[in-house]
Design a protein around this nucleic acid. Structure first.
Length: 758
DNA sequence: GTGCCTGCTCACGGG
DNA sequence: GAGCAGGCAC
């Protein structure tokens, strides 16, 4: 029996249809990843295709990793030669080799949303744009939109004739792009757009990649934007062996440029395309699948399909109403606990989904109090945290002095008495001479306007140059530790006078960064600072989700796409929250359809058990709102649910006489505030519980044993010798108080203080 | 140049 | 409710 015998008829058909374009419409849970991996195996083993000639593109690193593993498992020899990668990292790989053709340096840096905003502020100031009228954010959205549609600054300008607002944006776009280039930096959208530009303008390079990628597969095709589509089209143009897999019903990324037409019109672009539908769902029980089908049926303009399952009906969809979000969280926590107690499931089998990241907080607080292990996916990306960005800015400066944003970020962090005025003067000098900000700093003594302040800049420059010299022979983890040590970053953080919890969090994050660096070093044969920084820039939140540990997952509906869980809770099912207020009021029916697809994604994550919860009253942006139950809940037929909806629209705002509960806020949340939750919250909501902070080699589970005790003499790399006064066990680390002979008393964390007993 | 206070705006999703 | 720009005192 071959591995292909486990596939159903349609799956098999898709696997063996290797030549020419193929559109695989794969409904939720229909085994598309299996088809893709088996197809790769088939190409290599049955068709004799060189693995080198196969490319598989996904959206997240996690998906790429999973695909890689599964291919490795079923393909014997050569699987590692298959190019399995995300859109963004594929482009980075191509650009690192050829971007010099476009006038950039091959060691370019990648700007995240924060960096973009910094640059944009600067440009608006320079171009005297009134940001009250035209917000930075909306300019960036416009630029991103243009790039996703492959519209260059020049094209944008040409199309803006007669539109005052648009012309303004065109000017900013031009300047923005020039600034990025000057800084040798690319934003996320550039990665795709510039790769397309490169392939279009260089027939030779295009030809070589076309020749290499003879078989191309694209996952989550419904989420591609115009630029990504064009990229794929260019690469596949010669052999046209392009297999795209997607589900138009799961297209939920319009806001970042996804063009649903890419999948709906695939057959127009490739008239010879074969279309195969995968409609058998292997994931969910009957009632859940029915509910999903009934909800999505309210959308028009979709490719008709009907998911079916051989599984039994299973339990009905649970529907629960609550007075407010506290009770909602209460219930979810209690429900999961009782299921676990009864042996129906484990924590790791449960996921709680919500529309907005802010909703996680109440759930987190509940879990902390109840002592339940959980993990939040998403929210603020680990690498976007202030302390991490500070340290990374040092690394970027060491690696690529042309990144002005990074240099300016750290010039006065920790405080060196260098302020905005100085930065402006140096910037002006740099602009006059068309040199980088860092190069201008090097010549600080020649910037006459600076006067005495020039002397403050010199030690900074010297320090960076010294780091650069060390970078030659330092590992990455060592480099980071050295930077943190030399700039006195821990002391700086502690001196910020933030809440203690926050400081601890930040310190723990720094520790986590050490672990990430160390992990990078262990998984790569050749280590380079540039590559480390690049990998970091492309990390998404879901990438860090570990499947193995037994914790409840909390995430947005968006993050949940592609995942599955035996027990799923969809919380906050209220009109105004989900579907969001914007999609209800804006009057664009396609917005509502996108929300509905999101609901469909949510429902189809559930394997055996789905619970929908909603609250009559909910605090939103500091204001209590009374929203009706979500229309998506109403779209599920009553017989599929275990509870009936309220018949009247009794708690919709307009029909409400006196709201049922006008107790003051404080009494609305007695359970949480009345308990001594502080110490729990301190550790529970710390970033260590968030996905980015999954600690490896930095947690107490491994039970580090300190080589010193109270009263012992120890040595610290910077403070010299001292006596240990006290050691206290913290959730994440030991806190050690030491009286140093020369430096006085210090409180430090054992894992980074690296004290040695003497 | 720094730190603190205030008042304002912005509130969806993410590589 | 939170984060940030701007104003003010030191």
């Amino acid at each position: 029996m071959s591995i292909y015998d486990t596939l159903n008829k349609e799956q098999k058909e898709a696997v063996v249809h290797t030549e020419g374009p193929l559109l695989l419409l794969a409904g939720a849970g229909s085994g598309k990843t299996r088809v893709l991996t088996h197809r790769i195996a088939y190409l290599i083993e049955e068709m004799g295709v060189n693995p080198w000639n196969i490319m598989a593109i996904t959206f997240t690193n996690k998906a790429a990793q999973e695909m890689r593993e599964r291919v490795d498992n079923i393909v014997g020899f050569g699987a590692d030669q298959v190019w399995v990668s995300t859109f963004h990292s594929s482009c980075v790989r191509i650009l690192r080799r050829h971007i010099d053709k476009l006038g950039y340096d091959t060691n370019f840096t990648i700007y995240d949303t924060d960096d973009q905003k910094t640059i944009m502020k600067d440009i608006c100031k320079r171009l005297m744009i009134d940001t009250k009228q035209l917000k930075e954010r909306s300019i960036l959205t416009a630029i991103s939109g243009a790039k996703n549609e492959l519209v260059s600054p020049l094209d944008y300008e040409l199309s803006s004739m007669g539109d005052f607002q648009k012309r303004k944006i065109a000017g900013v776009y031009k300047e923005y792009q020039a600034t990025l280039k000057k800084n040798n930096a690319l934003d996320f959208d550039d990665l795709i757009m510039l790769t397309v530009e490169l392939l279009k303008s260089n027939p030779e390079i295009r030809g070589s990649y076309q020749e290499r990628f003879r078989y191309i597969m694209v996952d989550e095709y419904q989420d591609t934007n115009t630029a990504q589509f064009e990229l794929i089209r260019l690469l596949a143009d010669k052999y046209r062996n392009l297999c795209v897999v997607g589900d138009d019903d799961q297209s939920i990324y319009k806001f970042r440029g996804a063009n649903i037409r890419n999948i709906l019109d695939f057959e127009k672009v490739y008239p010879e395309a074969k279309v195969i539908k995968l409609e058998q769902n292997y994931r969910s029980t009957g009632n859940i699948l029915d509910a999903a089908n009934r909800v999505i049926a309210h959308n028009v303009g979709r490719k008709e399909k009907a998911l079916w399952t051989q599984k039994e009906k299973g339990s009905r969809v649970h529907l629960r109403q609550f007075e407010n979000a506290f009770e909602e969280a209460d219930y979810i926590s209690a429900d999961i606990r009782s299921k676990v107690r009864e042996g129906k499931c484990e924590y790791g089998d449960c996921a709680i989904l919500y529309r907005t990241n802010a909703q996680s907080r109440m759930l987190e607080e509940r879990f902390v109090i109840d002592g339940i292990p959980y993990q939040v996916i998403g929210g603020t990306n680990f690498y976007a945290r202030q302390e991490i960005k500070d340290i990374l800015a040092y690394l970027k400066t060491i690696d690529n002095g042309r990144d002005d944003v990074a240099v300016k970020r750290i010039l006065n962090v920790p405080k060196r008495g260098i302020g905005a005025a100085t930065i402006d003067k140096v910037q002006e000098y740099a602009r006059e001479r068309d040199i980088s900000f860092f190069d201008a700093l090097k010549e600080a003594d020649r910037i006459t306007s600076l006067g005495r302040t020039a002397a403050k800049l010199e030690p900074f420059v010297t320090m960076i140059l010294a780091f650069r010299a060390k970078a030659e022979f330092y590992g990455i983890e060592d480099m980071i530790k050295d930077v943190v040590e030399i700039i006195g970053y821990e002391e700086y953080l502690k001196g910020l006078n933030e809440e203690e919890d926050k400081t601890e969090d930040r310190l723990a994050n720094i520790g986590e960064l050490y672990s990430k660096a160390s992990a990078y070093e262990q998984t790569h044969d050749e280590i380079s600072l540039s590559e480390f920084l690049e990998e970091i820039a492309l990390v998404a939140d879901v990438d860090n989700m570990e499947n193995s540990d037994n914790r409840i997952r909390l995430m947005t509906f968006h993050s949940a796409k592609g995942l599955e869980f035996p027990h799923v809770y969809m919380s906050g099912m209220e009109d105004g929250l989900f579907p969001g207020y914007m999609s209800i009021t804006c009057g664009d029916p396609t917005e509502m359809e996108e929300e509905r697809r999101l609901a469909y994604v949510g429902i189809t994550r559930a394997m055996e058990d789905l619970t929908l919860t909603y609250a009559k009253a909910r605090m939103l942006r500091g204001e209590t709102q009374y929203n009706p139950v979500s229309r998506f809940v109403r779209e599920i037929p009553a017989e599929l649910m275990d509870n009936t909806l309220p018949k009247s629209r009794s708690f919709e705002p307009e029909s409400m006489g006196l709201p049922f509960d006008f107790r003051p806020k404080a009494t609305l949340k007695p359970k949480v505030t009345a308990q001594p939750v502080k110490p729990f919250i301190a550790q529970g909501i710390s970033s260590l519980n968030r996905v980015a902070g999954i600690s490896k080699g930095f947690d107490m589970e491994s039970d580090t044993i300190l080589e010193y005790g109270e009263g012992d003499r120890v040595r610290h790399i910077k403070y010299g010798e001292g006596t240990v006064l006290a050691i206290s066990r913290e959730p994440k680390d030991y806190k050690v108080t030491v009286m140093f002979d020369n430096a006085g008393q210090k409180i430090m964390y054992a894992s980074f203080a690296k004290l040695k007993r003497v």
